[in-house]
Amino acid sequence: MQNTILRMNKLFFKIFTLTIGFSFLYFPILTLIAYSFNDNKRVMVWKGFSFRWYKELFQNEQILEAFYTSIKIASLSATFATIMGVMIGFSLTRISKIPARPFFIFLSSSPLVMPEIILGLSLLLFFISSNHIIGFPSSKGQLTVLISHITFSVAFVAVIIQSRLSSYDKNIEEAAQDLGTIPNMIFWKITAPVILPSIISGWLLAFTLSLDDLVVASFTTGPGANTLPIVVFSKVRLGLSPEVNALSAIIMLIVVLAAISIYFINRSHIKK
């Protein structure tokens, strides 16, 4: 009897904690979405249901252009960062004789602890003086933002790849080598399939990091390279903007669809 009460208590506590926790995570976003359908310029005063702000959002060229720029920079930066992250992951786990290994670990992991405001400032000053000295980059713009995003994403991808590579059994590769498989074949047939999930999650992380970044982009951006966070920040820094509410609803929708599709892919994978 006492046991049942104890168990009920535990179950109650569990459900209580999870409900409070998830409400805290979702309440603000859901309110934002609800008010995106509000037909009033004053965001928090309800006037009636309408799609007005969605229409205005899709006519706002500044936001659309920024969205396009952001997606472009994020996908390029994620791709380059993933390629270099894989290179770092390999050199740190597969080359046992790499000279001064701690030094390379230091090199590849220090961007992880650098506050983005310092990173942004140093990159901006670097671009300005390299423009002075060698004339490159000729102006601040998408290229400088891209370079900066690659720089801080590489370390994150490298960590993900490294942890996967060091946790999986290297003997499989050696066995294949003993059986006479050529190195290229080993990579494509054995190593690549094993690290593919980490490559994908590394790419996604780098993509999100770039898409989310405001501080570094604000420092390194120039004319014609306003990313979405920069435009959104300029709109909401001092006040509220109903268009941004509509934008959050759309972004939430994309994220939820992506999450659901990943959930189903995972489930079919597990079933197999």
Binding site: L25, P28, P229, S248
Partner: peptide
């Protein structure tokens, strides 16, 4: 999945949500 969704949602927009609230 419910934990990952806010992780992916734009950080700036989640801060903005509190400004609205």
């Amino acid at each position: 999945v419910l934990l990952i969704i806010p992780f992916w949602t734009s950080f700036l927009l989640r801060v903005y949500a509190w400004k609205v609230l």
